[in-house]
Amino acid sequence: MNPSVSLKKSRKLWHNAWPPLMVLVIIILIWEFAVRAFDVSLVVLPPPSLIFSETVRYFRSELLEDWLATIKILGIGYFTGVPTGLVLASLISQSKLAIKAFTPLITVLVTLPVMVIIPIYMVWVGYQIEYRAIPVFLNVASIITLNTLSGFINVETRMLELASGYGASRAQTFFKFILPNAMPEIFQGLRLGCTFSILNTIGIELIAGKIGMGFSVQYFSGLLKTPIVWGCILIVGITGRIMFSIVQSLEKRFVTWTR
């Protein structure tokens, strides 16, 4: 690549990156300074330096295992929920009556907080860790179904007329016209799915305990080791951000035509 172009690019990147970086640095400095200057109790708010050092210290010995457990539940729930939702939405969208029939049920499933059944659910399945993926899966699947379905419904009639004008078959109409048109909304569902799968995974871990980042937060705050609690929260945030970035980069690849 032309060096001046890449220079321009990196300059632009820097131009966009420095305000958030500066804010971060200022916040961390003020936080560190204020906590030390006013002698705030560690339980209330530990300084960033301590959060960092304590988290690093505990990461290998205890947190790594919890982190992997969380990722496992999150991964199973999300990656089974997404295809299920997509297939369900595709099937339901084939009939207008089916859309009317199932939308209320899906709405109930989307809005009901999954956590409410966790105490009962734990009695059913015992404390087998893997079963925690099922509520996450249910939640993700219903959100993906709802968003994908609304994407399918919102395809402009102009598009459908175009498709029938070309004499497209039912399958062609679906795969060549409806599906690409619904892509932006499908990806909106995928992004919401990230948020909700993390929310529910952590929620279940907080309630059911035993293992996972949610449990760690609960456990270490019980021991009043707040620096590690903050570290755990940070790790969860970064995990979520990475998951979100993966979906966003897929979106950029697949949905190239909107802006």
Partner: peptide
């Protein structure tokens, strides 16, 4: 958006 805020409940 991606960090569940209920994680703050213990704190």
């Amino acid at each position: 958006i991606v960090t569940p805020q209920i994680i703050l409940v213990p704190l």
